[in-house]
Design a protein around this nucleic acid. Structure first.
Length: 302
DNA sequence: GCACAGGTAGATT
DNA sequence: AATCTACCTGTG
């Protein structure tokens, strides 16, 4: 057995986690589809982008990540990982004591977290998510970043690496033609992105204002955007706004609620209402557990 | 070739 | 208010 971990040699710095994170849980957090700019290479190292952050991450122990910062700071990473939140305690507040299936999901992915992502980026990637698989959404995001995104800098410590690009901001997206967006693989979603870009650029501060509103008010505003319905609004609010009561209902959750809660023939909005009332103010965290379980059952690779 | 994929919007019933 | 359908594009 080798005594040196290859990950440790290429990633110079330790990041000590506030609570243990099993490898399967980390994989679900970074690759489960709450974000689309984390990708794992063949040797198991993750390369991730979020806002100003570009970082390589490997795991050496359940409580230690090996990191190599390419842009942004370690604090940016801690913020993105929501290290300041006690996710074990939050999961304990879910109604698992009276919900055997939920308990099973929590036991399978202990420490599951909701990443903190910039609202604008979250909105963009989830508009792109409509009827696409995670892998394909990630490719759209990568194409948008590569072709139109800003070069990321490492706060002056080293020269900027031109190949490291973040997602384009909405004002930048507003300058792109629909064909340019389609060239990034967006398909019919290009019209939605172009429409939202036009609106947001014509209404500066609208998104930041929305981020300050309570969940139902923010949701009712987001669904007025082209290409943003209840599901994408809920994803934007859960992943980009820390509204943990949001309960996005997609095909996976629909299947989970049919199989394990007997909700046959319920509409999306009925299931969403059931989820918020049954799971309570942290329904979004419960949703991630249910989602992770359901995907694991179906053995999806992407 | 054809169905299907982290949905949404507009038309039809 | 519930139920179709078109919408791009890659993948099996």
């Amino acid at each position: 057995m080798p005594t040196t971990n290859p990950i440790a040699t290429s990633l110079p710095r330790d990041l000590h986690l506030s609570q243990p994170l099993p490898a399967a849980t980390l994989t679900e957090i970074l690759g489960g589809g709450q974000c689309f700019r984390w990708r794992r290479n063949a040797s198991g190292v993750w390369l991730g982008f979020s806002g100003p952050l570009a970082v390589e991450v490997g795991q050496s122990t359940p409580t230690t990540l090996k990191i190599g910062l390419l842009a942004g700071s370690a604090n940016d990473l801690r913020h993105h990982l929501a290290e300041d939140v006690d996710w074990i305690a939050l999961a304990d507040q879910l109604p698992w004591r009276t919900d055997p299936h939920l308990k099973r999901c929590i036991d399978a992915f202990p420490g599951l977290r909701i990443l903190r992502q910039p609202l604008g980026e979250t909105l963009l990637t989830f508009i792109c998510s409509a009827t696409k698989r995670i892998e394909q959404i990630a490719r759209m995001a990568e194409a948008l970043a590569t072709r139109h995104g800003p070069v990321l800098h490492n706060s002056g410590r080293s020269p900027a690496t031109p190949s490291l690009r973040g997602l384009p901001a909405w004002p930048m997206l507003a300058t792109l033609s629909e064909p340019q967006l389609r060239a990034c693989g967006l398909g019919f979603r290009a019209r939605h992105v172009a429409g939202v870009a036009r609106f947001l650029t014509a209404h500066p501060g609208w998104l930041e204002e929305t981020a300050r509103l309570d969940y139902p008010t923010a949701r009712s505003r987001l669904v007025t955007l082209p290409g943003v319905g209840p599901k994408i609004a809920d994803c934007a609010l859960l992943f980009g706004c820390a509204h943990l009561e949001a309960f996005p209902v997609d095909v996976w959750i629909l299947r989970a609620m049919r199989r394990h809660y007997g909700l046959n023939n319920w509409s999306d909005s009925q299931v969403a209402h059931f989820g918020r009332t049954h799971f309570g103010p942290l329904a979004g965290l419960a949703q991630q557990y249910l989602f992770a379980w359901e995907r694991a059952q179906t053995h999806v690779s992407c």
